[in-house]
Structures are given as C-alpha cells and as structure tokens.
Computed example of a mutant assay.
Amino acid sequence: MFDVSIIMPVYNVKEHLPRAIESALAQKKVIGEIILVNDGSTDGSKDVCEAYAEKEPLLITVINQENQGSGPARNAGLKAASGKFIYFADPDDYFNERLLADNIALAKKRETDLVVFGYTQEKAGNPASREMRLPNLPQMDTQKAFREHFRNMYHFSPYALWNKMYRKAFLTKHNITFGSQKQGQDALFNIEVYKHLDSLTVNRKPYYHYVTHEGSAVNRYRADRFKLELAIAQSFENLMETWEEEDTFSDLIAEEYFNVVYLETANLVHPDCPFTTDEKIDRLTSLWTEIGQTKISPYKKEEKNPFRFALLYELKAGHSRNALFLMKTRNQAAKQYTKPFTKIKTFFNN
C-alpha cells in the first residue's frame, strides 16, 4: 500500500500538465502513487499522461474515460486509490516537493482525518502576482472545537481540494464521494467532509501554487449556473442545520446565497447570454424575490467589498437594471485595466 494517492483529473490541459505531473514525481521522502484520470481529452493530454506512465510504470496509473466532468473523474481515481491518504491536485497547477511528506507526517502525529495547509495564488504567466495565503486556525482535536472555529475555516478556501489532504479510511467510512454535476463538486464534497469531521490538523506553511487562467469555468456563461450554485448554498445551509448552528452562522448562510445571486448576475451580463435586456431584468428580479428577500437581506448586514456592497444595495432596493449595469461595467473595467493595475502593483511590491 502507498502512503498517499495523488488523484489528478485531466481534461484538455496539455500545455500545463507536464509541470503538474513533475511536481507529483518530485515529492520527497514519501511513497506515493499518481493516478491520472483522462476525462475524454481531445488536445493530446491523453498522450502526455501515457508517456509519463510509460516512464514511471510503478508510480503512475492512467485511467481513460469518456468526458463526464471532474467529479466522476475524481471518483474513478478514488476507486482505484490504494494510498492511506488522498491528495487531489489540479492539472494546471504545481506544488512544493515537501507537500506530501510534511503533511502526512502531521496527520500521522496528530491522528487526524484532514490536514489543511497554506498556498500561493498567482496568475498564469505573471509570477509577480503571487499572494501567499496561510490558514488562521488553531489545531482542533474535537468536533466541538472545529465547529467553534468554523468561521475562520470558512474564510480560508473552504471548498478547495488542493489545500487539503484527506485520510482515505475517513472518506470510505462516511461514503464521501463526488457528485456528477459539472461544477461545484469540490464544494459539495468538502461540505460532506465537514459534516463528519471530528478534528483538524493545520499546517501554516504554503505548499501549493494555485494558478488562475483566463477563460476559467467560472468566467464562462452557463445556462445551468444558478441551479449548480444554489445546490451548494442549500447544502451549506443543511450542514448548519445538521449542526444546529444555523443561528450562529446565519451570516455565512446568507453569504452563500448572495454568492448564488452574484454569480448569476455575472452570468446574465456575459456576452454569450441569450436573454434580452428585459428578460435579464425579470430573471434577476425573480431570483431576488425567491431567495434574496428571505435568505440574504435579513441576515447579511455587512459587506466590506465596495463593489459587492453597491450590488447588494441595488438588489435590496429592487433595482435589477442597475445591478446588471454595475456588473457589466465592472467586468468591462476589469478586463480593460487588469494588466495596467498588475504592473502598478508589481512596481510597488518591488
């Protein structure tokens, strides 16, 4: 049995894939297997996977399947995994050579089922944009402690997979797997993890490099985006109800539902959205009536981000047309000024 199984879903990432695989192969002082699940790639990613497997047949396994999405791909990896621990890496990122060894050692020492560690976020092709993010959390040895400190956990990429390592026996015991929806499976997976988690180990060092790329899934128009995002908010609310902490974390529940409306607003102003202006206004008005007035307004009292504050104000006032205009203007400005702002930021950081 391997110490750890690295599971990597692969879909049309030929350009970035070698760096991710090399990161996995470069891990120090740990015996791990690498499971590459080619999810119906059409760009040559399959050939990259199989070339690496041919060079490292004892360490790398390739699973080829028709395109089903990253959730089913990770499930295929989980089913094949023999490691005591599971680590989910993305094929367009990379990570430190000590990631597995250091975090496995902590998990074994503290006998916990989940380890959370720091990461660095950066934009593709722009290393100067790197921002280090570390967990502001204590070590938690009981379910009660985890729930008491959950607010801090929530503010540290709670739905990401790549800044966490999971004990496989824990996942198996609670039958925790991924759903088949095309987006948001990572959030639903982690919410299920939190439902059963008794303790948590925290490593306040950065190991992973999360790289954002233009044209990511969150920036594309999706006809089903509202349905997918709503499922996450409802699952989160259910978690709080299961804990009997819905009053304590009412603001976080409201934040989840606000995120649903926020992303759907961005979806509606996307150039690929087929709706007319009036249809967009009616759609947003209906959504706010459906969930904004009941799930958001009564509980979301603060918003530090100026743009989100303005958007929330317009939505509360019933000004859907203004909300759509705000989002469209913001997106256009972001696209136009991202490069100049990045150069200015780099200058002052140096």
Rank of each mutant, 00 (worst) to 15 (best):
T42Y: 07
E229S: 10
L137N: 04
M165C: 07
M132R: 12
K109E: 15
G77M: 04
D186F: 09
F117G: 00
G125W: 10
A145R: 11
V13T: 08
E245S: 14
D272P: 06
N96L: 05
D92P: 07
N38Q: 08
F325P: 01
D272F: 12
Y154P: 01
A233I: 03
G292L: 02
L284F: 07
A160V: 09
P298F: 06
I63G: 01
V30G: 00
L137D: 03
D93I: 03
D272H: 15
T248C: 07
R283D: 11
L311V: 06
P57F: 04
D247F: 08
I104K: 00
E246L: 12
T346Q: 13
Y87V: 05
N75T: 08
R167K: 15
T142D: 09
T342R: 09
W288R: 01
L134W: 03
S41F: 07
Y11E: 07
P127Y: 12
Q332G: 10
Y262T: 05
A254C: 05
R110K: 13
L59P: 01
R220L: 15
F170P: 01
S216H: 14
P72S: 10
D90G: 04
I7E: 01
Q185P: 04
K168Q: 14
L230E: 11
F2L: 10
N349P: 02
D47V: 09
M8D: 00
E214Y: 12
F150A: 03
Y194E: 02
E264N: 14
A217S: 13
N96T: 10
G44V: 05
V4A: 15
D47M: 10
L188N: 00
L268K: 01
V115E: 01
A73N: 03
P18F: 10
A53R: 12
F2D: 12
D278S: 14
Y262C: 05
Y94Q: 04
I86P: 00
E148Y: 07
L17R: 01
N259Q: 08
P206F: 07
K280I: 04
K109R: 13
Y262L: 15
V62M: 09
T277P: 03
N12Y: 09
L315E: 01
K29F: 08
P9Y: 06
Y337P: 03
D198N: 14
E192Q: 15
F117L: 02
N350I: 08
M1T: 11
M132S: 11
Y87N: 02
L326W: 01
Q143M: 12
E148A: 12
A51Q: 13
S250M: 10
H209L: 09
L311I: 10
E22K: 15
G215Q: 12
A53Y: 03
G69V: 08
F88D: 00
G215C: 11
L36F: 06
A233W: 00
H149V: 10
L114Q: 02
N238L: 11
I21A: 03
M153E: 02
A73P: 01
N175E: 14
P18E: 04
M165G: 02
N190Y: 00
I7W: 01
D186S: 15
N38D: 15
L99R: 00
E97M: 07
I63D: 02
D3C: 12
Y52T: 02
F170S: 05
C49V: 06
